[in-house]
């Protein structure tokens, strides 16, 4: 992806221009800004104008979207919000508050306990689960995690979850996700599964996936995702931006070339209603990023972007091709 390449284009020159553009941008808030000098700076190099435009535009976009950004980025007070929404929330609260959040927010196992435990979330909640070894699992909306095994090493996920699992060579953790078994874990990755469809995306480290749909087990490294599409019975490996893995924790859903049935499954968990896909379009793919919000607009967004119709079938919504 070209976005990966762009991270390396920074040079001292562009850094210098950026510093100057930022200085001019903030100088203009004051009444004694030297506009003539600013004009001279703009004329000195066409890159100055480009950089200044970008700075001013980004600043305005942030200003425009501040309420949304604030609601997604700002952590709630720990005592009011017993469930830690995402790990990023912790730093802003400070050490003591983070400790409180751990006490109130995380369900922690006592080591050695053998009993299986189930965790479930509703359509508008998520929760973080800490395992005894320090691993964490962030369970997305309308999902179910089953934890079993004496060493908490037999997990089953239905729905969506982000895993941050300590590597421990002495343990062989296996996560069942639909037909897939994920093992050899010591990494950060995201699993989305619904029925027989699944997406396993690795943000860091590596996992091994085996499945009846795969001839042999495959190793999935950082920046890779495996998509299992029951419509064509295929499993395929693609690249994925590490940023987009588990993006739902920041309130956005990122899909890259995803089979439509899996997109529908993902959004129905947020919409609070089942979203199905009619067979004639089940083979189509969707790429895009959408903001979750309260979850109700997602279906319409996908329909609009893909030129589909939404029919209300009472029990749920059905996406169909716009032209019969």
């Amino acid at each position: 992806m070209d976005r990966g390449v762009r991270l390396h284009i920074g040079t001292d020159m562009t850094d210098r221009i950026m510093d100057e553009a930022l200085a001019w941008h903030s100088a203009q808030q004051s009444d004694d800004c030297d506009w003539d000098a600013f004009a001279l700076w703009l004329e000195a190099d066409p890159r100055h104008r480009d950089c200044y435009d970008d700075v001013a535009l980004i600043d305005r976009a942030i200003e425009d979207h501040r309420p949304v950004l604030q609601s997604v980025l700002t952590p709630p007070a720990p005592v009011d919000m017993p469930r830690v929404r995402h790990r990023r929330a912790i730093w802003a609260m400070g050490g003591l508050a983070a400790a409180l959040a751990l006490v109130f927010g995380l369900s922690t196992f006592a080591p050695g306990r053998d009993a299986a435990v189930d965790y479930r979330t509703g359509p508008n909640e998520s929760r973080e689960i800490a395992l005894a070894d320090g691993s964490r699992i962030h369970l997305a909306a309308a999902s179910h995690l089953h934890v079993a095994g004496e060493r908490q090493d037999r997990l089953t996920i239905e729905g969506s979850a982000y895993f941050d699992i300590r590597h421990d060579p002495a343990r062989s953790m296996v996560i069942q996700a639909g037909d897939q078994q994920v093992s050899d874990i010591g990494t950060r990755f995201d699993i989305l599964t619904m029925g027989r469809a699944a997406r396993i995306a690795v943000a860091q480290g590596v996992v091994t996936v085996s499945s009846p749909s795969l001839a042999s087990a495959i190793t999935l490294g950082q920046g890779r995702q495996l998509i299992v599409d029951p419509a064509d019975g295929d499993a395929e490996v693609q690249t994925v931006q590490a940023n987009d893995v588990g993006a739902w924790r920041e309130g956005r859903l990122a899909w890259d070339n995803m089979p439509l049935p899996l997109v529908a499954a993902d959004i129905s968990r947020y919409a609070g209603r089942p979203v199905a896909v009619s067979p004639d379009i089940a083979g189509r793919r969707f790429s895009g990023v959408l903001v979750v919000g309260d979850g109700t607009a997602l279906v319409g967004d996908v329909a609009r972007l893909m030129d589909l119709k939404v029919a209300d079938r009472g029990s749920g919504l059905l996406l169909t091709g716009a032209r019969p």
């Binding site: 309130g251 956005r252 959408l290 903001v291």
Partner: peptide, 8 residues
Amino acid sequence: EEAARLMS
């Protein structure tokens, strides 16, 4: 979309 791109 713009908000999502910003968050991203």
